[in-house]
Structure formats: structure tokens, C-alpha cells
């Protein structure tokens, strides 16, 4: 596979490490009343779509950036790649 890194261009997936569902970025508030339930959902409950899937990849043998990659699980087509930090900053701003 090839991941089109937002700043470094197309790079072999061998340079990356896969983590999983991009919702791992949405870590719940530890002080919420139902924090344990929320963390349980966050950590264990995953969608398994046959189609577009947003997932986290880490460019370990590269610029050490975490990426949010939208990959079609049926075709492996990658339709979107973003720097996870930018995504996280956007989320922090909008929340």
C-alpha cells in the first residue's frame, strides 16, 4: 500500500505503523459522571465498516506524524489523509 502523506507525498506503507480506529483520538472526559462507561465505549467498541474507514497510521520511519487515513476496507482505496494533530486541533477548537 501507499499512503499519500500530506507533506511528504506518496510513501510506502512499510514506513508506517497501523493503530486502528481514528475515534481513539476522542478520549472521553475523566471527570464525567459516567466516565468509566464512556472510556469503555472509547476503548472497546468499534465499527467495522465494509467501506470507508477512518484510521490512525503513524509514520514511524518518517516524520513521526500520526495521520488520519480514510481507507476503503473493500478496495484499499485511500481517499483522504490528514495530519492527526491538525484534526485534533480542529476538534479541540470546535468542542
Amino acid at each position: 500500500m501507499i499512503i499519500n502523506h500530506p507533506t511528504l507525498g506518496p510513501r510506502d506503507a512499510a514506513e508506517f505503523v497501523h493503530l486502528g480506529d481514528a475515534t481513539l483520538m476522542n478520549r472521553p472526559d475523566w471527570q464525567a459522571e459516567d466516565a468509566v462507561e464512556q472510556f469503555h465505549e472509547y476503548l472497546y467498541q468499534r465499527d467495522n465498516p465494509a467501506g470507508d474507514y477512518r484510521e490512525l497510521w503513524y509514520h514511524e520511519q518518517g516524520d513521526r506524524s500520526w495521520l488520519v487515513v480514510t481507507r476503503n476496507t473493500l478496495t484499499h482505496e485511500i481517499t483522504d489523509v490528514q495530519m492527526a494533530r491538525d484534526v485534533a486541533m480542529q476538534q479541540a477548537k470546535s468542542s
Binding site: 511528504l8 510513501r11 512499510a14 514506513e15 514511524e60 520511519q61 518518517g62 516524520d63
Partner: peptide, 9 residues
């Protein structure tokens, strides 16, 4: 570029 060669960064 940073990359990997023979498993080495």
C-alpha cells in the same frame, strides 16, 4: 527524506 533501509530508520 526519512525512510527505512533494511529495517533501520
Amino acid at each position: 527524506a526519512r525512510t527505512t533501509m533494511e529495517h533501520l530508520g
